[in-house]
Amino acid sequence: MKHQRVEADPLFAGFYSTSDAARLLGLSGTVKLRGWLNGWPGSASGPIVERDFKSTSTVSFLDLMEMRFIEFFRGQGVTMQTLRKAAERARNDWGSDHPFALSKAKYLTDRRKIFAQVAEETGDKVTWDMASGQHEIWLTIENIIAKGVEFDPETELASRWFPRPSEFPTIAIDPKLAFGRPVVTGPGVPTAALFRQWKAEAGNSKKVAAWFNVSAADVDNAVEFELQTAA
């Protein structure tokens, strides 16, 4: 398996603060994200995510994708202990720094097996029931997590994410564009830039569209996206 390393070209890794990450994941605060990234003060338990930019507070795109995975499983009742152990085991077994950002197509069975093994060891009945039960249940979970995510065919890692594919099918997050900020696909214009200009033009979408060479619909979608995801 080939690995996607930040060191190869850090400019294409995506750059986010924990506040940015919370906003994009639809979370109200950053406390738990900081715990997943750095561990918890006064606790011997370390972080769950093997961060790309370890010497800074910056979050990479793949870090963000792993936190999205963790947030979903936490919502299903999976314990922090299970998630931490599963991440450690998957990193070792698969040789990937970001096992929770890997394609379900290739790692569906292996990921399910790892979670079942860890759940049995930790006595996590909720996760054991999910991972050891009917295959369809786990497949449904993986499908939900993978929704809106595109994967690199070589590395099998997430490469682009449409955070709200049903509402905003043309707005994506691609670490190779605008340092990973949300953009309108096609022209690749950041939604934040369109939103700022829209405010400067007193809400005149046509003027903004002409300025950035995009459609008025692109401007309206970018504005609505920024308003809905505002911190």
Rank of each mutant, 00 (worst) to 15 (best):
L194W: 03
E121Q: 13
T82G: 01
G133V: 01
T82R: 03
L139C: 10
E121C: 08
V78Q: 04
K147D: 15
V78C: 07
P163A: 04
V126S: 10
T82P: 03
I114H: 01
A90D: 03
S96W: 00
Y107M: 07
P187R: 05
D97H: 14
P169E: 10
L108A: 11
I114Q: 04
K104L: 10
A193G: 07
D152A: 07
A193R: 12
W94Q: 00
F100T: 06
H135Q: 12
A101P: 04
T140W: 13
G186Q: 02
R91C: 02
R164A: 13
A119D: 03
K113S: 14
F168Y: 14
G75P: 07
F69Y: 15
D152T: 01
A158R: 07
K125I: 13
S103V: 08
K104W: 11
I173V: 15
E120G: 09
S159Q: 14
W128E: 12
E154T: 10
M130S: 07
A101Y: 05
Q81H: 15
Q197S: 14
F72R: 15
G188T: 00
A105M: 09
I145P: 06
M67Y: 06
T170N: 15
R112G: 04
G75A: 12
P99W: 02
S132P: 02
D129F: 14
K106L: 11
P182D: 00
E156I: 05
E167W: 09
L139K: 15
Q76N: 13
A158H: 04
A146N: 13
A90L: 15
V184T: 08
V183G: 02
N92H: 13
G133H: 04
R68I: 13
I144P: 09
R74D: 09
K106E: 13
R91N: 05
L139M: 11
F195A: 01
N92L: 13
I171T: 04
A105E: 15
